[in-house]
């Protein structure tokens, strides 16, 4: 008996106009797994991440989360795009953290976190607020509840963004270069929060340049270049003993 993979990609293709960004990605992420994706910029790793919650449409191939296709319905042997409300329902089960945080600037930290639970899940302010306070405490920002994002540092903003995503109680978390826009001394706090999540058994797909994080917290590592998976395996193997020439040349530049 096999368990349903949390993410399953089969020959996922994606083009922007003439530019083919993804040229057939196959991978599986099991529940509880932390998968890190590395690769040069423009390699398609962020695009693939955005396909997982249908922020980008895929051109061909199949992509499913927890056994269900994302953004499409299969009828016969054809895929039909789902209407907006159903895509939204699916997305609400997948948390996403962005490189540029994208907190809502007109709302306080607490309001950012309770917004989606209240509007999408129709939770009461009391229930959503209680969970939000717990989450903000967990990311170390219990004292910043009523502060607007522009009064927070980048690292603090990113931790609020993580709390905001967690507030929807997702079964999968996507991280799109969560520390790339941060000052070096603020990276640690964000990575600590992510490490804590990984230890608690959250399924995570992390696009990152933090090789240290990938080595310690990652269960698997995927190196993407030119829209295909060049190499994958455990972080230890891939980082210490890369088999492909392209992986070697990339790692020699970043390590």
């Amino acid at each position: 008996m096999s368990i349903t993979p949390m993410v399953k990609a089969e020959a996922v293709h994606k083009s922007f106009g003439r530019l083919e960004v993804l040229r057939g990605i196959d991978l599986e992420v099991s529940p509880g797994e932390v998968m890190c994706m590395i690769g040069p910029s423009g390699s398609g790793k962020s695009t693939f991440l955005r396909c997982i919650n249908h922020l980008e449409k895929i051109d061909c191939g199949r992509l499913s989360v927890d056994g269900e296709l994302v953004g499409y319905r299969e009828r016969g042997d054809k895929l039909y795009e789902l209407p907006d409300p159903e895509v939204c329902k699916k997305r609400s089960e997948i948390g996403m953290v962005f490189q540029r945080f994208n907190l809502f600037p007109h709302m306080t930290a607490l309001e950012n976190v309770i917004e989606a639970p209240m509007r999408v899940k129709k939770e009461s302010r009391a229930v959503a607020g209680q969970r939000a306070r717990k989450l903000l405490q967990r990311v170390g920002l219990a004292d910043k509840v009523n502060v607007y994002p522009n009064q927070l540092s980048g690292g603090q903003q990113q931790r609020v963004a993580i709390a905001r995503a967690l507030a929807m109680e997702p079964k999968l978390m996507l991280f799109d270069e969560p520390t790339s826009a941060l000052d070096p001394e603020l990276v640690g706090d964000v990575l600590d929060v992510m490490r804590g999540l990984a230890e608690d058994g959250m399924t995570m797909v992390v696009v990152t340049h933090e090789m240290g994080f990938a080595r310690e917290a990652g269960d698997s590592l995927v190196f993407i270049d030119g829209g295909i998976i060049v190499e994958s395996g455990t972080p230890r193997d891939v980082l210490a003993n890369p088999q492909q020439e392209r992986t070697r040349s990339f790692l020699s530049k970043v390590l």
Partner: peptide, 16 residues
Amino acid sequence: HGQTEAAQALGMTRLL
């Protein structure tokens, strides 16, 4: 546009 994406990623509908 990141604002729209962040809100969509949380499962909010287009009108919301």
